[in-house]
């Protein structure tokens, strides 16, 4: 019973972690579209490599130009998708702050989680193996305890343990 519970806990933990991962892939809901929401999605093309919103150049004509393009379109009531496709058409895919989740670009989104899941599977198998090995040892040692005593060593162990003043693992 107790063991079942333990295994269940681990099994329950994994899906909840999974859910977290999946949640992250779902884009956040969009309320009223604002300029600053959009400018966070594009990379400034002036060479600073930062997000348009964060371009570090104090006076940057490219940033201003791009921001104005965004503002115009937001004011015209264009949707997010329309603005994004306009920018991709104008500057190429590199204007997007993160690669779109389709085609080859999906690899960059999926590989990390796939790798972690594969690693988790390996860890699960390995721990299971170790536990099996540990159980075998456990049975023999608990039997052995009752008989063979090395009293001399036990006394020495107690004494040395008492004097052992190491403060945790070095």
């Amino acid at each position: 019973m107790g063991r079942m519970f333990k295994v269940m806990r681990l099994n329950r933990l994994l899906p909840s972690v999974l859910v977290l991962f999946v949640l992250s892939l779902v884009p956040l809901q969009v309320y009223a579209l604002t300029v600053s929401e959009m400018t966070k999605q594009f990379i400034c093309q002036c060479g600073c490599t930062a997000v348009l919103d964060n371009c570090t150049h104090a006076e940057c004509s490219i940033r201003d130009e791009m921001t104005n393009l965004v503002r115009q379109r937001v004011e015209q009531g264009k949707t997010e998708a329309e603005i994004v496709s306009f920018f991709v058409g104008r500057y190429g895919e590199k204007v997007l702050a993160s690669p779109p989740k389709k085609g080859f670009n999906l690899t960059v989104w999926i590989t990390p989680f796939a790798a972690i899941l594969a690693g988790a599977a390996i860890i699960y198998i390995v721990i299971k193996k170790w536990v099996r090995r540990g159980r075998a040892v456990e049975m023999t040692t608990s039997d052995a305890d009752s008989t063979e005593h090395d009293e001399e060593y036990e006394i020495r162990l107690e004494k040395e343990l008492k004097d052992f003043e190491s403060r945790g693992f070095r």
Binding site: K40, Q41, I43, T49, V51, G92, E93, K94, V95, L96, A97, S98, P99, F104, N105, V108, W109
Partner: peptide, 11 residues
């Protein structure tokens, strides 16, 4: 792909 992409903060 021969296409330049950027991977930024949202990713």
């Amino acid at each position: 792909r021969g296409v330049k992409t950027s991977v930024g903060p949202p990713f």
